[in-house]
Design a protein around this nucleic acid. Structure first.
Length: 365
DNA sequence: AATCCGGGGGC
DNA sequence: GCCCCAGGATT
């Protein structure tokens, strides 16, 4: 393995990659121009999320919040609703916080200074490099999973890409490649190569524009790179959820707290069921304690299994009825099946919502 | 340095 | 099933 590369080789690499990119790059909605706000929003959406998933969300989001000002002054509920289903919800709350700061402190103009931009909520080393290079042509490395995969193969590096230190090594490695090119083009070209050719499994080495520069291809190790430590399996939790109706036919929903899992999203009242405890009892106890609602919990009506990256919920859903229409909990409210659409739910509880609404309307027929 | 934080798609 | 994905914040 060698990680030193002379100027001439770097230049040849740049030429080969950029030429390939000019022919094969995808037309992406956030690459129509170099509007720093659009670039920023897209980069936040793209964190741990595939391009095809992001596209419809990006269109909708820019339609709702076309400018930093629009996002800064928008209601949190509308912002959450626009992110519903994308996951990692702290991304969008941090983004709104950061955009508010841009509006208040920088007159609505995304700062070009690295320290200034990096200090904003939710802007880490990757996002900082990506936005500053793509929107402002700053020669900043933007090292994400794609870039580490591509360069781990180019230089046949077997460092664990899960380690914080490894990203820094790749940043130093990439830096000389950003000279004498448009940083915007180069950074995007590497990521595009990673997405289209230098893929995690069965990489398209025979089609690769930089195959002649690739140490891993020479060594036959491309398939084994990058190295990443295995993560431990998710923890299972037995959950019980209630669709509680009052005598007006309204449903009880609850907003989750400021921090932690699925923060600020809405859900049906639910609680974890401790080992050996009856689900109905756990649920009735929870409804009484948390909401001051005395409800009759009947037979289970649905099972929902939902996998997170570090957690699995096995949710048993119950229907319940109460005659009490005022709730003690300030984070809860009674809503109709119409109004419920305005609230952002995690996918796990969207599964409950969908099936309950289905039942509701089919009983009409 | 390790853990938390979602959800979807590819194979 | 398992792995990955245009990561960042928190501890």
């Amino acid at each position: 393995m060698h990680t030193y590369t002379d100027d001439e080789t770097i230049h040849a690499f740049q030429d080969a990659l950029l030429s390939w990119h000019s022919h094969h790059k995808r037309e992406l909605p956030w690459r129509q121009d170099q509007d720093p706000y659009k670039v920023w929003v897209s980069e936040i959406m793209l964190q741990q999320t595939k391009v095809d998933t992001v596209i419809p969300y990006f269109h909708h989001f820019m339609n709702e919040f076309p400018t930093p000002e629009a996002l800064a002054y928008a209601e949190e509920e509308k912002v959450m609703k626009a992110w519903e289903g994308l996951g990692y919800y702290s991304r969008v709350r941090n983004l709104q916080t950061a955009v508010k700061e841009v509006v208040e402190e920088y007159g609505g103009r995304v700062p070009e200074d690295r320290d200034a931009f990096s200090s904003l909520k939710g802007v880490g080393p990757y996002t900082s490099g990506a936005v500053l290079s793509i929107a402002y042509e700053k020669p900043e490395p933007a090292v994400d999973g794609n870039v580490m995969r591509v360069f781990s193969r180019i230089f046949n590096i077997s460092d664990d890409i899960g380690k914080a230190k490894t990203r820094k090594r790749f940043e130093s490695l990439v830096a000389p490649f950003l000279e004498e090119v448009k940083p915007s083009e180069f950074n995007q070209a590497v990521m595009e190569l990673g997405a289209l050719v230098c893929t995690p499994k069965s990489p398209g080495c025979l089609l690769c524009p930089v195959q002649d520069f690739c140490e891993a291809r020479r060594a036959g190790t491309a398939e084994d790179l990058p190295v990443k430590a295995k993560k431990k399996p998710p923890k299972a939790k037995d959950m019980a959820a209630a669709v509680v109706k009052n005598e007006h036919g309204q449903i009880l929903i609850h907003q989750r707290g400021e921090t932690g899992l699925l923060a600020r999203l809405w859900e049906f009242p639910n609680t974890e069921v401790p080992e050996g405890r009856k689900r109905t009892e756990a649920l009735e106890h929870y409804l009484a304690g948390e909401y001051g609602v005395t409800a009759q919990v009947k037979e289970p009506v649905q099972k929902v299994e939902h996998v997170f990256s570090h957690l699995i919920w096995y949710i048993t859903v119950f229907e319940a009825w109460t005659t009490e229409s005022n709730v003690q909990d300030p984070d809860s409210r009674w809503v109709t099946w119409e109004d419920i659409n305005q609230y952002a739910f995690p996918v796990s509880h969207q599964k409950i919502l969908e099936e309950r609404k289905e039942k509701e309307t089919s009983s009409w027929i």
